[in-house]
């Protein structure tokens, strides 16, 4: 929530604080997943596998509203806004640049909150299938959610037939973000 809080903090302390940001956010994705209709009907192993593969991508969608592409700032959960230049000191420059680019593309689609939530559900169940036991069940769940998302978007914007395909094109973007950046290192202090 608070990656930077004054010049008296060492870069190590800032890095620890930034790493800690992800813990509550990941837990919220797990709770979000449990609320997706049909998700808890999958086997526990498949639920865990989808969450392990897809949580980073869901977080990228969730966090993109915190990125202001116009003035190149990021707003953290404590409500404070930091310029990209300050955050580069954390060493996450390439991830932040990719996030700005992604948030610009997704932001331009102008999704309502419920559309965004349904899109996040699609992102999660569209994650990598390695290790999934019941492929058919996961595919059925994915198809149902994609149908619901298409229906919601088309009902609300019957004159815009390009929005839904453009939204689906963000899925490969998220996979690329995941492949390039999920191996970034975090540091947690052991007391």
């Amino acid at each position: 929530a608070c990656p930077v809080s004054g010049a008296d903090r060492s870069s190590q302390e800032i890095w620890e604080s930034f790493s800690q940001c992800f813990t509550p956010a990941v837990k919220e994705v797990v709770e979000f997943a449990k609320g997706i209709p049909g998700f808890q009907e999958l086997s526990q192993q498949d639920q865990v596998m989808l969450l392990k593969s897809g949580t980073f991508q869901v977080l990228m969608v969730r966090f993109c509203t915190l990125f202001n592409a116009e003035d190149r700032t990021v707003t953290f959960l404590n409500g404070k806004t930091y310029p990209l230049s300050t955050l580069r000191a954390l060493g996450m420059g390439s991830l932040l640049d990719a996030m700005f680019e992604f948030s610009e593309k997704l932001g331009s689609l102008g999704l309502e909150p419920d559309e965004m939530a349904l899109f996040m559900a699609v992102v999660l169940v569209s994650a990598d299938r390695s290790g999934i036991l019941d492929m058919w069940a996961v595919e059925q769940l994915q198809e149902g959610l994609i149908r619901a998302l298409r229906s919601l978007i088309n009902r609300r914007r019957p004159d815009d037939t390009t929005l839904f395909p453009k939204l689906l094109l963000r899925l490969p973007d998220l996979r690329t973000l995941n492949n390039f950046h999920s191996e970034k290192l975090l540091a947690f202090r052991i007391d």
Partner: peptide, 25 residues
Amino acid sequence: HKTHRVMTLADHISHIITQDFARNQ
């Protein structure tokens, strides 16, 4: 002198998820 556990974001996510499911079993 501080000791740190260093892990990738992917491993950290995995760890939280495994913990959560184990806790709720």
